[in-house]
Simulated assay, not measured.
Amino acid sequence: MESHTTSFITTGDGVRIAYRFDGAPGKPVLLLSNSIGTDLHMWDAQVPVLTEHFRVLRYDARGHGASDVPSGPYSLDRLGRDVVELLDALGLERVHVLGLSLGGFVAQWLGIHVPERVDRLVLSNTAAHLGPAGQWDRAIAELLKAPDMQATAEMFLRNWFPARMLQANDVVVEAFRRTLLATRREGVAGSWAAVRDADLRRTIALIPRPTLVIAGEHDTVTSARHGEEIASTIPGARLRVLPAVHLSNVELPGDFLDAVVTFLTERR
Rank of each mutant, 00 (worst) to 15 (best):
P115A: 06
D60W: 02
G23F: 12
L31N: 00
R268W: 14
R20C: 11
F256R: 00
T265L: 14
R55I: 12
G190D: 00
A175K: 11
A18H: 06
G80E: 07
L252W: 11
P115N: 07
A133R: 15
Y19T: 08
I17Q: 10
L86V: 09
R158V: 13
S101V: 09
L242C: 09
P115E: 07
D88H: 11
L264W: 05
G80L: 11
R185N: 06
V172L: 15
L181H: 02
D68K: 12
L90E: 04
P147R: 10
A151Y: 02
L144S: 03
P208A: 14
S33F: 00
V84S: 08
R158N: 12
E52M: 10
G254F: 08
W136D: 02
D119W: 10
T152K: 08
G99V: 01
T51R: 11
S124N: 04
W109M: 11
R78L: 12
A61P: 01
L79K: 03
V56A: 04
P70L: 03
N159W: 12
G227P: 08
T6S: 07
A259D: 10
I36C: 06
R267K: 14
P115V: 11
I17P: 06
P147Y: 12
R158P: 01
P28V: 09
D88S: 11
G63S: 07
R178N: 13
T6W: 02
L247Q: 00
G104V: 09
T6N: 07
D258I: 10
Q150T: 15
I234H: 03
P162W: 04
D148Y: 05
R178E: 15
L252F: 07
